[in-house]
């Protein structure tokens, strides 16, 4: 017997077909094009572009920025989600809006805000200059911009989960004599670990790929403040297509590996949950 809620076959087939088509045209095709362009003249030029000192420095900088921004956002995201899901205080809704702000603001604007704050003509510019502290066109600026843009990922993944889970287990732990640190470590983190890892991986993927905000604060100093996405743009603008696509392919690979890890995690977590059910 057919279920009443089941859609007609032609409709579900049509929708699936449409989704696959869009995915092919918008996602798979460009990705394939990146790799084809990168290897258009074989492995040799692509390899040269990747091992170019400027490219290596860009890679190093990208990984360094992500290595700082992701842990900061992990801790900040957990704290934000905890506050929103577990505490009731005036301004809670405002906090939710603030957490989501980076999603709704163009990254370029985010970058410009930092220029406004720390640039030579900015609010803190003269003071920073007087104390010889370099924020813009240097690592601190890149890190700040990346943190801003990627802040929502961890918090946004955790908030619905923590709200749904409630805090009965935390209360049980409290009556059993656990202190706050023990409750966080032994009860709360294990409850949210899979979602947390997924959030961290998404945050990482975006941190490595961020272009707009970073482009504004970087200053494009080759070998110094160029991250991988910025390096790709420079190479492209200089008509070094193979180099641009080779570095882009590498960047895409980093993102794909991250997404692959996230999918593997989800499968693993489902298996574990299934094992317990």
């Amino acid at each position: 017997m057919r279920e009443a809620t089941r859609d007609p076959t032609w409709l579900s087939a049509g929708l699936i077909g449409l989704a696959v088509l869009i995915a092919l045209v918008v996602l798979v095709l460009p990705l394939a094009a990146v790799f084809t362009e990168a290897l258009r003249r074989g492995w040799e030029p692509a390899w040269e572009a990747i091992t170019d000192p400027d490219a290596i420095s860009a890679m190093y900088l990208t990984l360094l920025v992500a290595a700082i921004a992701v842990p900061v956002n992990t801790i900040g995201g957990i704290a934000g989600a905890w506050a929103v899901a577990r505490c009731d205080f005036p301004g809670r809704r405002l906090l939710v809006t603030l957490i989501e702000l980076p999603f709704s603001v163009s990254p370029v604007i985010s970058g410009l805000v930092y220029v406004l704050l720390f640039g030579a003509q900015g609010y803190f510019g003269p003071w920073l200059q007087a104390h010889d502290i370099q924020i813009l066109f240097a690592l601190p600026g890149l890190v700040l911009a990346t943190i801003f843009v990627t802040f929502p990922f961890v918090a946004r993944t955790l908030i619905p989960l923590m709200q749904e889970q409630g805090q009965a287990e935390e209360e049980a732990a409290l009556t059993l004599g656990a202190n706050t640190a023990q409750i966080l470590w032994h009860v709360t983190l294990p409850k949210i670990r899979w979602a947390l890892l997924a959030g961290i991986l998404l945050c990482n993927a975006r941190a490595m790929g961020e272009f707009g905000a970073v482009a504004v604060v970087s200053g494009h100093i080759r070998g110094e403040t160029n991250t991988m996405p910025l390096h790709v743009e420079i190479l492209y603008n200089e008509y070094q297509f193979v180099g641009a696509f080779a570095v882009a392919a590498l960047l895409a690979l980093l993102g794909l590996v991250t997404l692959g890890a996230k999918t593997a995690l989800e499968l693993l977590s489902r298996q574990r949950m299934g094992g317990h059910a």
């Binding site: 009965a168 287990e169 209360e171 049980a172 009556t175 032994h186």
Partner: peptide, 13 residues
């Protein structure tokens, strides 16, 4: 004070 919670609130992990 020992508490047995309504839905037991056992640590699932």
């Amino acid at each position: 004070v020992g508490v047995v919670f309504q839905h037991y609130a056992l640590f699932r992990h």
